[in-house]
């Protein structure tokens, strides 16, 4: 392998990643539209628990690992599953394709409350969240 070429490719990749990581207004708008279209609000709300955890709580928990979590959340949206927020697995949303799932996941990860922009080394765990932000089943368990 040519070392120079490899390095150039690396910078290119990094640049691309940075670009992708930036929450563009357009992507956010698309995300918000998809949330409506795909009926995500059937199970989620912004700040309070319903069937699933509030979007803000998900964003807070994963704030430091957005690049990784965007794929994890996208997979969860499409295929369902869970166990991270209580005893109710997420229902797979069969009407969402992979590209849409990534837009949705990226949108969720940007829903941080205005007063909570955590430092990179702080990874909020479920126990650190206000009780009101947890689904009922998990709240009872605490």
């Amino acid at each position: 392998m040519h070392p120079q070429r490899s390095s150039r490719q690396g910078w290119l990749m990094l640049g691309l990643l940075l670009l992708m990581a930036l929450p563009s207004a357009e992507a956010q708008e698309r995300g918000a539209t998809l949330v409506e279209q795909k009926v995500c609000f059937g199970c989620h709300q912004m700040t309070s628990a319903s069937i699933g955890p509030p979007w803000q709580a998900i964003a807070v928990r994963h704030a430091a690992r957005k690049e990784v979590m965007v794929d994890v959340l996208a997979s969860r949206i499409m295929r369902g599953g869970g166990g991270n927020w209580g005893l109710v697995p997420m229902v797979p949303n069969q009407r969402v394709n992979e590209a849409e799932a990534k837009v949705l996941a990226a949108w969720v990860l940007e829903q941080l409350p205005a007063n909570q922009l955590p430092a990179a080394n702080q990874l909020p765990a479920a126990s650190q969240l206000p009780t009101s932000q947890l689904p009922t089943n998990q709240r009872n368990a605490q």
Binding site: G81, V88, P89
Partner: peptide, 18 residues
């Protein structure tokens, strides 16, 4: 299958809640 994947300590409670 997704409920089973939880490997919940109390499977009946997990099924009822889910």
């Amino acid at each position: 299958g997704l409920i089973d994947d939880l490997h919940a300590a109390d499977p009946h409670a997990a099924r009822t809640q889910s």
